[in-house]
């Protein structure tokens, strides 16, 4: 790092200049976006988070009551725990499915790769709502998946309204967000390193697991960050494939808005959700920095 900034004199100069002088003319271009996002994104987001401390529905009356209500209630804690668990399981499932697919994409011919990428893109761009609808149709009691079970000599299962149904839908919908960053990293791995390990006596499978898989870590980290954070706030899939009895956090938040208009309570949930997401993103960034530093050394 110090070597590269020594070569490009521009950066070294920028560091020695006073803080404000670094506002070069390119930064002015960002002002409209900055204002736009401040008014229509940052302001609304902070408003709802602040409601945690300013709006109260009886029996809450002030201070940290809303947070205490959310974190203190047995039922609410269960929902929070279930939400984090579902997000973690979807992250694991998508990475297990994405790895072989992304790996094969890096070894096949350009034409096959285009077809494989096409399947992912079509699934990704086909609306989230319609993909959920597809799963509602698939998972019906008289639906196709149950037909397959019957053909295999098994009994029909009531999928809709259960956690497995929600996980099936979420894994399918979040898959592209794991695959694309993972593929971007796998494409850049120098496969001669694996060959080198083999020429030094490692068996092919040992070379694969000890050289190739560790090199793919940044892809898993980037994909997991996206999938986990998106899954934490997922609303449509649990609402359509799950049930009210086993709801996730976003459903509970929507109910606070829709049924009781209790924005203070919704704000407390939003705050906890944001903290969970931020912790995960910071953690992910730290891991990818360490692995980059490890590679550089």
């Amino acid at each position: 790092m110090s070597v590269s900034s020594g070569i490009t004199g521009k950066q070294t100069g920028a560091v020695s200049r006073p803080f404000l002088a670094r506002l070069d003319q390119w930064w002015l271009l960002a002002l409209p976006v900055f204002l736009f996002l401040a008014v229509f994104f940052l302001y609304p987001t902070s408003i709802i988070l602040l409601r945690t401390f300013t709006e109260f529905d009886a029996p809450q009356s002030g201070g940290l009551d809303n947070l205490a209500w959310f974190l203190g209630g047995e039922a609410n804690r269960t929902i929070l725990f279930r939400t984090i668990l579902v997000a973690a399981v979807s992250t694991i499932l998508t990475s297990l499915i994405a790895f072989p697919y992304a790996y094969l994409m890096t070894v096949v011919s350009a034409r096959t790769r285009t077809v494989m990428l096409g399947a992912v893109l079509i699934s990704m761009f086909f609306g989230i709502l319609l993909r959920n609808f597809s799963w509602v149709v698939m998972l019906q009691y008289q639906g196709s998946l149950n037909d397959v079970l019957v053909a295999l000599g098994l009994n029909r299962i009531r999928f809709l309204g259960t956690m497995p149904a929600v996980l099936m839908g979420m894994t399918h919908i979040l898959f592209p967000f794991m695959l694309l960053p993972l593929y971007a990293v796998l494409r850049g791995i120098d496969r001669r390193l694996v060959l080198a390990a083999q020429s030094l006596g490692a068996t092919p499978s040992r070379a694969f697991w000890q050289v190739y898989v560790p090199l793919s870590t940044p892809g898993f980290v980037a994909g997991s960050m996206l999938v986990f954070v998106l899954a934490l706030g997922f609303f449509v899939t649990p609402a359509l494939l799950g049930s009210q009895q086993q709801s996730l956090l976003s459903q509970l938040m929507f109910t606070q808005f829709d049924k009781t208009a209790a924005f203070g309570r919704a704000g407390a949930m939003a705050l906890v959700l944001m903290i969970a997401a931020t912790v995960f993103v910071v953690l992910g960034n730290a891991i990818s920095r360490t692995s980059r530093a490890y590679e550089a050394s």
Binding site: R22, L23, D24, F41, P44, T45, M253, F263
Partner: peptide
């Protein structure tokens, strides 16, 4: 831009993808 503030802008522009939509939705409604 060479400015160091630009990393802040990068985070701000990407933030709508990270902040759960349900949170933004509640705020935007209010």
């Amino acid at each position: 831009s060479q400015s160091r503030l630009i990393s802040f802008l990068r985070i701000l522009v990407l933030a709508p993808q990270i902040v759960p939509v349900i949170v933004v939705g509640l705020g935007v409604y209010l």
